[in-house]
Amino acid sequence: MAPARRAAGPARVRPVADPTAPPGGLTVAPSPLDPGAALDPHPVHRRLREEFPLTYDPLLRAWVLSRYADVATALTDPRFTHGHRPGDPACARAHTDVDLGELRSVAERTAFVLARRIAGRERADLVADFCHWLPAGTVAAAVGVPYRDMMRLVRGRAATALAGECGGQIAVREKALASFLANVLVDPDQVAALRDAPPGLVARAWAESLRRDPPVQIAVRRTREDVPVSGGVLPGGSSVALLIGAAGRDPERFRDPDRFDPLRDDPHQLTYGPGFCPAVILAGLEAEYAVRALFQAMPRLRLADGFRPAPAGLITRAPRTLAVLPNG
């Protein structure tokens, strides 16, 4: 059964919430920056989608969009300015002479080296010991910088100069990988399904994790002209906060949106654009070889007793720790 359709808002009226006017008895919309949202933003996102699809947030100093259709439009429509999102058309046109075989090779080699370092331990933290290192290691190998030097350069924010604007987004890939491994390891059925899965299934699980738990929760754009959206019209020249985390769990677009389901028949994610980009490819390869390397080096790998991943963060979001028992 298709998800229920919510009632459509007025198509071409000005937003109800005017940032220059006092509340005047109007119900105040919650803010994505409200206290507690860093631990669990989903109740705020749900209320914004359902009751305030267009509202002005004084903390963000921007209009806020939370429904999937509006956020997806803002990320691709020329009536909005476009920030740098790997895989968008402008990004895709900038990449030439990319050796896909080399990208695959460095991702595989780095993942297996890191996994073997963890395998002999009684307990490990996959965020600190694996996710923190894999994206930096693949970039280091790809650009020919010694690994020990790359980590120093990354923390000094020189990765972008070496690997380009896309390849240098190491922190985003680190968080995305942490959320992906958390989604896999928290469910024994997912572990069993992905342990020896073909690359296609791992890629679907990776895309599903980006949908459900995107590493970047809020992106900012600006309107070039008036744009009709759910709940009203965005004024031209306005700053707009796009709640990617809310859009990825919109029940109007996704069936059972809070569930992690690599086999869902309505997939999509908004973290990356659909075009060619080595950073997007590399992120997918890192996820694929993370699963392969970890389970090959540690067939009995599981979460530590009593531990459950706890994502945190407002603008970017991911588990800060993943306590595991490498040998079960």
Rank of each mutant, 00 (worst) to 15 (best):
A161S: 14
P235F: 05
G245E: 09
A246E: 06
R155Y: 15
R222P: 00
A124W: 02
A17R: 05
R61H: 06
S209G: 03
R212W: 11
D187T: 14
T316F: 12
A312P: 00
A159C: 07
V145A: 07
G273L: 02
G120I: 03
S238E: 10
A94Q: 08
D97P: 06
T81D: 14
V145W: 02
P319S: 11
R85H: 05
A287E: 09
R148D: 03
R253P: 11
A176L: 14
V145I: 10
A318L: 12
R85C: 00
L114Y: 00
H84M: 00
Q190D: 13
I118R: 00
L185C: 13
V240C: 04
D57G: 13
G156H: 14
V71S: 07
A297S: 07
D196E: 15
R292V: 05
T138Q: 06
A140Y: 08
R222I: 03
V13G: 06
V154N: 13
P58R: 02
C277L: 02
R14V: 11
A161N: 10
D40Y: 10
R157N: 11
E165G: 02
L54T: 10
R157S: 13
G164D: 04
S66R: 04
R109A: 02
A318V: 08
D88N: 08
V44W: 06
N327Y: 03
Q296T: 12
V324S: 02
M151A: 11
A287M: 12
A136V: 07
D265F: 07
E50A: 12
R14F: 11
G200L: 10
R79S: 09
G275D: 01
K175I: 00
P199I: 09
V227F: 01
A92M: 06
L134K: 05
Y68E: 06
V202E: 10
A37Y: 01
L54Y: 09
N183S: 15
L54K: 05
P22Q: 00
P32D: 05
E165R: 09
A182C: 08
D34M: 07
Q269E: 15
G232M: 05
D226M: 01
L294K: 12
L59P: 00
R320K: 09
